[in-house]
Design a binder for these strands. Structure first.
Lengths: 347, 347
DNA sequence: GACCTCCGATGAAACGATTTAGACACGGAC
DNA sequence: GTCCGTGTCTAAATCGTTTCATCGGAGGTC
């Protein structure tokens, strides 16, 4: 007897309805759902039939209320529009999928307020655990989460005296690699195009750049820092205009960008302004997103193991969820410079 | 009196605990949470104090079990790695945010099985509604969702005799625009590089291409179709190799790709193989993602109003959720060709 | 035929919040 | 002194599921 949605609200069928239709008790329906082996074949088939007829959909709220746990993880991304983070997310997804959990993606879009709202909501939903690339890894809300029982793994950032697991890439080293590469190519005046200093990745990569610069014995004032509002393609273009505006004797011959979006924007602006890359300006990006190699001039970039980053982070989280003897761990991957046309050629 | 997490499981505090600590009844705590105006200031402050001390986190499962509704929407994306869809997602997010709902992103990655798993899970979670760019818009699971009370809006696809709202772009027209542009430029042999035929967007864009070709009176065999496994950058590169492998008299002078990822891959392979764009091969992409303009040769592409698509879809869903007199609506946006260097120049 | 086992199914009690009807106290008005 | 209204707060029922102690009956053993 199929249900015909009446005039009123088509309230969906519950286990109680299924039990009544199948002529069994409530507990038996639950057994069919959770321990089918404890139910005789004939009863089970009768119950399954009733579920199909009624269009029964298990109510996850009730289930997780009773059991006290959900079957989901969440990843709070810093910027869903940046392919770097979607690649990380894919790594997480693969790990979650093979553990039989579903993954929710949330996008903080670099805004603390949005991040906070997402975290609060996820905590109320009682997700098993949260992976996050935080706007600010020192945000006390993160501590509050673990204090109150939601495991958290920090992705693509680390944190000082940490009570979290984290998976990151050595950004200081990445910055060094980039700038050493430019120094090797003979550049004497370089710009570091970063996003806002509030972003840790931007700070660390800049720090690495300065270290390499200092070690090469070059004067600090010849490493110019350009801060952008956000590490996006549009801001990269804007940075290009600012570079052109500099007096010729101060104008850098190369730029290291805090990520590939900035680098692509800068590249685009430079070329459309009639200048050449790397002739007039060599460019190094960061992340080695898939589009970097397909750019106007294939982009030299610092590669991070994006998908592995995600996979490893998810594994740590799953371990923390499943294993009571879990020890927090800070994994740091090593970046690698991929040299392409945007820096190769006459300097 | 702050709670000290004991040796056992740090079971989080419930309204009951808060009530006990504050010395009020359970209902009062609930009132503080939901109708703070009905509670006297002193009591309210006492309760709030207790909540803070105990680290109380409202249990969303219990709440939504009782009230029968959640505060979330979900968008099931076809491919989170494609910037087109993340732009759509951003549009949705903005609308959801201003309605005070949170948005979960799920990625089907083009796989029916994953899509199905996500949908089942979202249905069990009793999300308010689902936006989806489906692998197959005729999937009966979508009908089953609305039958069982979860509103669904189809994004970037339409469906024949529809009992859904949908927001799409006219893909047949988009295909025509692309191929008419190539015909105008004098091309007599063109390749259509599509993804798998199972993807509706791929079929429709191809259909538009064929229509334009036929109307120009060109022989059908000179519009070659190359099917790829998936509409990705890697497959675009592979398609490039296949094109080179064709005998010279059959080799096309231009390619129209079903999306920008394919086009960027094709572009990259063509250039690294020593041929020029548009000299040896003109290329038109589709979607006009941000990276298209920054490509090796800036890419001519068919632009879709990505963010508006998402925003409008979310608005339709919110209307369906909130307004009982809601009428289903099929919105179709019009695409627009953006001509750039990859087709301009000597044909 | 009495007794024991074991399998399958049962029913009630939880989980943590919301909701509603009603209790209680406190003033003010007559 | 009684009555009533108002403003707060309480107690109990409820949402849909899982779990656990229990019960009935079929089959086997002596």
């Amino acid at each position: 007897m199929a249900i015909t949605p009446g005039a009123g609200t088509p309230r969906s069928a519950s286990v109680k309805d299924v039990a009544a239709t199948a002529g069994v008790s409530l507990g038996t329906v639950s057994n069919v759902l959770n321990r089918p082996d404890r139910v005789s074949r004939t009863t089970r088939e009768r119950v399954e039939r009733a579920m199909a007829d009624l269009g029964f959909v298990r109510n996850e709220s009730a289930r997780s209320l009773r059991t006290g746990s959900t079957q989901s993880l969440a990843y709070v991304m810093l910027d869903a529009g940046n392919p770097f983070f979607t690649d990380v997310a894919r790594g997480i997804e693969l790990a979650a999928e093979s553990a039989g959990l579903s993954l929710f993606l949330c996008n903080s879009d670099g805004r603390s307020a949005r991040e906070g709202a997402h975290l609060a909501h996820l905590q109320q939903q009682r997700v098993q655990g949260i992976l996050i690339t935080p706007v600010d890894p020192d945000d006390p809300q993160l501590d509050q989460l673990i204090e109150r029982g939601t495991p958290v793994v920090i992705v693509d950032r680390t944190r000082a005296g940490s009570s979290f697991c984290s998976v990151a890439v050595d950004d200081v080293l990445g910055g060094r690699l980039a700038v050493e590469h430019l120094i090797d190519a003979g550049h004497k005046r370089v710009a570091y195009v970063g996003g806002p200093e509030s972003i840790g990745q931007v700070r660390d990569r800049g720090e690495g750049a300065r270290q390499a610069w200092a070690e090469a014995g070059l004067p600090p004032e010849d490493l110019i820092t350009l801060s952008c509002e956000a590490p996006t393609v549009a801001c990269g273009r804007a940075a290009g205009e600012r570079l052109v505006g500099l007096p010729a004797r101060r104008r850098p011959t190369a730029a290291f960008c805090a990520n590939d979006l900035l680098a692509l924007g800068l590249l685009q602006q430079t070329i459309s302004g009639g200048r050449t890359v790397p002739g007039d300006l060599a460019i190094v990006g960061y992340d080695d997103i898939e589009f970097a190699a397909a750019a106007a001039v294939p982009l030299t970039s610092v590669r991070q193991p994006r998908q592995d980053l995600g996979r490893r982070a998810a594994e740590l989280l799953l371990d923390e969820v499943g294993d009571p003897t879990h020890e927090h761990e800070q994994v740091v991957f090593t970046p690698e410079l991929v040299a392409r046309a945007s820096t190769l050629g006459r300097p």
